[in-house]
Nucleic acid binder design. Structure first.
Lengths: 206, 206
DNA sequence: CTATTTACATACATTCATGAATGTTTATAA
DNA sequence: TTATAAACATTCATGAATGTATGTAAATAG
């Protein structure tokens, strides 16, 4: 039985991506053979080669599925007008980001793959650059919002918006890596909201 | 010409490690074949198998060569008695860490390999755990020193040593990852000392 | 209704990469 | 001085993994 309908084909495409995520997460990207992924998805390598040019393209597709919604989600909080204090927008956005990471296994797995189960060389160095752009955009957003907070007088005296934006930038990156890196026996997950609160409290007006 | 003297053998061992670092950095660990590494070192795979059980063991050796001196170096500053203010010890230690990373290519390459050119699965998941321990020890040290600073009255009012230790922990991890990840065209390197100063200034008594 | 694609499965050729086995000198210990 | 073992080089067998080429049945366009 071959030649499925268009919707069925789209479904197998999704199943291949799901399987790729599972196998990537378990074996690491380089040790994940297309045969394993195909078997996990209940298809043959032929199906994968039909939908994707090679493993790299499959990897990109898997990543994009998760990244875009994530950025949109956090940005909507970051740029929301519902917060009188811009610092509250930052705090809410950061907490939302890590909350999703904490209780959405799909998202978490993709981030774990990207952080500790992929080697960024050759075809994959492009991924690293693409992941670097959102990071820099995050920095710019932080700077803008901290400046707005300063204008509104919500920032603690003597703080430079650019400088503390960089501090928040590094803090967020580090939190992400620590959460996904040293997960095992640690109860870090539960302390993250408090850590974010502490971080923001450092820059609130007394 | 075979059967070198003991010192010569030790020398080729070191050359193998050097070559492994170069090849790991260029190709990523999984795509680094022992043949490539051997050729780079001017030996054959036989030599590598003589000195190391397999690629993983070679990887561990390469890592250990760089890590231990690094921890010792930063710890000596961190636990030094030369600083009247414990916060100065932290600041000096962090700056020293990133200074070495910045102008010692060997150290930088090893960290880059560990962060973005290695997949932490199977044999290598042990590496991640070993790298996680120093991270937790760093957290504990931070906590102790911040507490000491609090006792001496050098800490800004209302700050909890444990909480800001975690903040510094995440900050440092993030700085490391940002520095090694998004290196390319950014001038991040030059801003790192200022970022550390800013970070510490946030917790100094006004 | 049939011609053409689509959406795969199957088969094949080729290319590494590994680990072990074995060979070969030569330092070194006795 | 010689036996032993160190420090490699060479060779071999084997097992993936990849990409491509080809087969094929069913959906769909006309």
């Amino acid at each position: 039985m071959v030649r499925k309908t268009k919707e069925e084909a789209e479904q197998t495409r999704k199943e291949i991506i799901e399987s790729a995520r599972a196998v990537f997460h378990q074996c690491g990207v380089s040790r994940s053979t297309l045969e394993k992924i195909a078997k996990e998805a209940g298809v043959t390598r032929g199906a994968i080669y039909w939908h994707f040019k090679d493993k790299a393209e499959l990897f990109f597709a898997m990543r994009e599925d998760v990244f875009a919604p994530m950025v949109e989600r956090t940005d909507s909080l970051l740029l929301s007008d519902d917060f009188a204090n811009p610092l509250d927008a930052i705090e809410a956005s950061l907490k939302e980001f890590f909350r999703v990471l904490d209780d959405c296994p799909v998202v978490r797995e993709v981030f774990e793959i990207m952080i500790s189960r992929c080697e960024y060389v050759d075809e994959f160095s492009a991924v690293q650059e693409e992941a670097g752009r959102p990071a820099y955009e995050f920095l710019e957003k932080m700077e803008r919002i901290y400046r707005k907070a300063a204008d509104k007088g919500m920032l603690r005296q003597g703080l430079d918006p650019t400088a503390i934006a960089r501090d928040t930038w590094a803090f967020t990156s580090g939190l992400l890596h620590l959460m996904l890196g040293c997960q095992k026996g640690s109860d870090l997950d539960k302390q993250i909201p408090a850590m974010i609160s502490t971080h923001m409290a450092l820059r609130r007006r007394a």
